[in-house]
């Protein structure tokens, strides 16, 4: 059995929070460069160039690429033969967030109570999902998720008879309604199946897959490709100012569901798609 210390988790999570906010992932940067070559609108190109320059400045000067440094969401794969000492895993992750957001001069964007709305002043609590897996390792996948794109996300309980066309129409509608508000170019995360809460989780989880990587199931991969083309024909473009790059990618995850159900969730992510992962 492997033993992992509380403090090691704190340090790792703190480091991930800072790096995710300062260093745009290579997958996003490559997607910006590719989009710059195909984008039809001059303003759209200008936006993409500024985003590339912005990412460069953030990395070189060690500052956050966006002022909304987000809600921290962690998907943790906890090996069943792994033992954590020194405190609870949830506390360790939250301590890591507290440290990372403080040391990294990141913005605290969490309120303690949705009604009273008083800031917790340390960006905790994060949203932590733990999945039990085989083995003795602890893997943490984290994202700093911006509020603008999260606010334009949506979920719908479709009817099985709505079929693939119904799913596509719905996803295109969510992207259309979001328009400029979600800071396009977007990464569109989709969960299909499960139930009410599970499809939302699948949509979120799909966003952890790197840009450019297709689903392993060929049928789902084809649907991703088709939808990607259609989304980019909506005309929304970079920052919603018109253009041919509305999404950098779309990710779909599917799961078993009830015979009477076809739940679909669309979790939008902005271009500041910030992810890190670490295995302890």
């Amino acid at each position: 059995m492997k033993v992992i210390h509380y403090e090691d988790i704190v340090e790792k999570v703190a480091e991930m929070c800072i790096e995710a906010n300062y260093d745009l992932g290579e997958d996003v940067m490559n997607a910006f460069q590719a989009a710059l070559k195909t984008e039809q609108s001059e303003t759209g190109k200008e936006v993409l160039s500024q985003l590339i320059e912005n990412a460069d400045i953030a990395t070189k000067q060690r500052v956050p690429m966006c002022q909304d440094t987000g809600t921290v969401v962690c998907i943790v794969e906890l090996g069943q033969d792994c033992h954590i000492t020194g405190g609870s895993l949830y506390d360790a992750i939250n301590d890591g967030i507290r440290k990372g957001y403080g040391d990294g001069y990141l913005r605290n964007s969490i309120v303690k109570d949705p009604l009273e709305r008083k800031n917790t002043d340390d960006n905790t609590p994060g949203i932590i999902h733990i999945e039990m897996v085989e083995g003795d390792q602890l893997s943490i996948h984290m994202t700093a998720k911006g509020g603008g794109a999260e606010n334009m996300s949506d979920l719908k309980m479709l009817k099985p008879s709505d079929g693939i066309q119904g799913i596509k129409d719905y996803i295109l509608d969510v992207v259309r309604v979001a328009g400029p508000n979600a800071c396009p170019p977007l990464v569109v995360g989709v969960g299909i199946g499960g139930n009410f809460e599970r499809c939302a989780y699948l949509a979120k989880k799909s966003l952890f897959r790197p840009i450019g990587e297709r689903h392993k199931d060929l049928e789902v991969a084809d649907l991703e490709v088709e939808l990607m083309e259609e989304i980019n024909r909506l005309g929304i473009g970079p920052q919603g100012m018109g253009g041919t790059t509305t999404a950098l990618d779309i990710k779909i995850e599917v799961e078993a569901c009830h015979i009477a159900a076809l739940p679909v969730a669309v979790n939008l992510n902005c271009h500041a798609s910030r992810h890190k992962e670490a295995t302890l």
């Binding site: 985003l51 912005n54 400045i57 690429m65």
Partner: peptide, 13 residues
């Protein structure tokens, strides 16, 4: 006016 959402490090300059 629209400023570019997410271009926060560049705008700060």
């Amino acid at each position: 006016f629209g400023a570019i959402g997410g271009s926060a490090a560049l705008i700060s300059r």
